[in-house]
């Protein structure tokens, strides 16, 4: 049984998002259930960070974890691509 991957989850503040950020994260959790677990990005066990940006400005403050790999999601399509990548990577 493969180990669950702990990924830091960081949202932008959501001033005027172009899609439902929380809904998209819930979709990711559903589709990747058992493969990943979202944790606070400030925790060291998060080896990488997923930044959920409401638009392509991607203004979230990433200074606290800029030393780790960061993947930006700025749309539902971005999320779909990332989900597929994760699924392929796990197979």
């Amino acid at each position: 049984m493969s180990k669950v991957l702990r990924i830091g989850l960081k949202y932008c503040g959501g001033c005027s998002p172009c899609y439902d950020r929380v809904g998209t994260v819930n979709r990711i959790k559903e589709e990747l259930g058992g493969m990943i677990e979202f944790v606070s990005p400030e925790r060291e066990e998060a080896k990488s960070v997923l930044v959920i940006s409401g638009c392509k400005t991607a203004c979230a403050d990433i200074s606290l974890f800029s030393d780790r790999p960061i993947r930006f999601i700025s749309s539902e399509d971005d999320a779909s691509v990332w989900i597929e990548e994760m699924k392929r990577g796990k197979q």
Partner: peptide, 8 residues
């Protein structure tokens, strides 16, 4: 709220 804290 995690989804707002970056601004708040």
């Amino acid at each position: 709220y995690p989804e707002y804290e970056d601004l708040m």
